[in-house]
Amino acid sequence: MISLYLAQRTWAHRLPAWLKLGALAILSLLVTPLDSLPVMMALLLAALVLYAALGREAVRQIALLRPLLPLLVILFAFHLWSGDARLGAVSVLRILGIVMIANAVTMTTRMDEMMDAIEPLLRPLALFGVAPRAVALMVAMMIRFVPLIFALWEALNEAYRARTGRRGGWRLLAPFCIQTLRLSNHVAEALAARGGAPRANRR
């Protein structure tokens, strides 16, 4: 979900969404209980091969996984501290491999195809008054606004550096939260202007 949809169509775009999502689910289930280092290395290698097969644009998107890095470092450090570097490497490789493959699914599946595949699973939610379409809307909005929120952070950082010559870091957190809330206010207004979010009783 970190990354974005790829504009140019690839062979993976043509695969049905249910197949990609199903394969991803099975793969995740298979590798979760395993803790063999060679298997995890193979998993990461497979992910890299997958990106290479998707083309140069996809490979470029790997850079967008950078925000995951601190998490992986902490995870590895934790295992190192508890005296098992091998298990640390297994965990890091497993997460990285699965996230990359999941990301590849996101990059090659349009939101509406994705929701078509998932909506049957969401249908029971209607019993609790939650419209499946509202969930679909939520997911789509998340994907849409992640790059925008990154851009917001970059803009704040730039403004800070322009006046101080230093990176803003944690000091930007408060203004960032405020700006994010303001953005969500604007978006809520625009959504209301088009008739609001779908409700369970509408359809």
Partner: peptide, 8 residues
Amino acid sequence: DHQIIFPT
């Protein structure tokens, strides 16, 4: 950017 809700 405040108005567009969807990624594509």
